Simulated assay, not measured.
Amino acid sequence: MRWIHSVLFWSFFVATSAVLFFVGLVIFLVTWPFDRNGRVLHLFSSAWAQLYLWVNPGWHVQMEGRERLPWHGPAVLVSNHQSLGDILVLYGLYRPFKWVSKASIFKVPFLGWNMYLNRYVGLVRGDKESIARMMAECERWLDRGVPVLLFPEGTRSLDNQLKPFKDGAFRLALSKGCPLIPIVLTGTGDTLPKHGLLLKYRARCKVRVLEPVDPRAFSDVVTLREHVRDLMVREKSRLDA
């Protein structure tokens, strides 16, 4: 049954992505004169992503703390990373932000093209020049009052445990003095696999947005980074339990 479910899902995904990309293109063209930060297109993309949760009746998402995320003003959002399902679930926050994502995904037809229209931030992992461009672009969005969302682990975890965090998100928060908001996910590893296309039929996903952390209370990147990671590890343990 899993392969039937997977074939139906991916067929639906491809067909709807082609149609909804052109809807997104129209929204981009219509809203560009008055919405230069792309808030409307991002919220449309959020609804687009939720469609793929709705058509999977075995996937359930419980979300807490969304009210802690800003509608206006800069913030650095950080989340743990378990699977591609994280993207679908985090779009369900329905708050404006710019993703930091692998540059290769921007080349994927329809889905990646929509990311390009949204002006999300691309990154080539391990490339110092790309990392520098990513940081500069994130700083520009923060200066414009638009939050950015990063996965500080840098890649998906294979064992459901948080990997060590990279410094980038924490350097951004310290340099801009803006709130750093941790987001903890669990259960999303049971949706879409890291390798392969065979989906799991059932998943119980939980998302908890933690209280914002004021980076100005920390003297250096390492202390801030480890403080936030400790918060997320403890919260994930509670969610898993």
Rank of each mutant, 00 (worst) to 15 (best):
L93N: 09
W113I: 05
K128F: 00
L88E: 04
V100Y: 00
R125D: 08
V124P: 04
R125P: 03
E64H: 14
G122A: 13
L77P: 01
H81I: 06
M63F: 05
R119V: 00
A103Q: 13
N80K: 07
R119C: 05
F106Q: 00
I87K: 12
R133F: 02
L117P: 07
H60K: 15
V121M: 03
G85R: 06
P70W: 04
N80A: 01
L88G: 01
F97S: 07
N56C: 15
G73E: 02
W99L: 02
N114A: 14
Q50H: 15
P57C: 07
M63P: 04
W48D: 08
V100R: 00
A136Y: 08
S130H: 10
A132Q: 12
H72D: 13
A75N: 08
A132L: 13
V76K: 01
K128G: 01
R95D: 05
P109T: 04
Q62K: 15
A136M: 11
Y116A: 13
V108L: 10
L69G: 11
D127L: 03
N80P: 05
H72Y: 11
R140L: 08
Q62C: 03
Y52C: 00
R125N: 01
D127F: 11
L123W: 06
L111C: 10
I105P: 00
W141R: 07
S83L: 06
N118Q: 15
E129R: 14
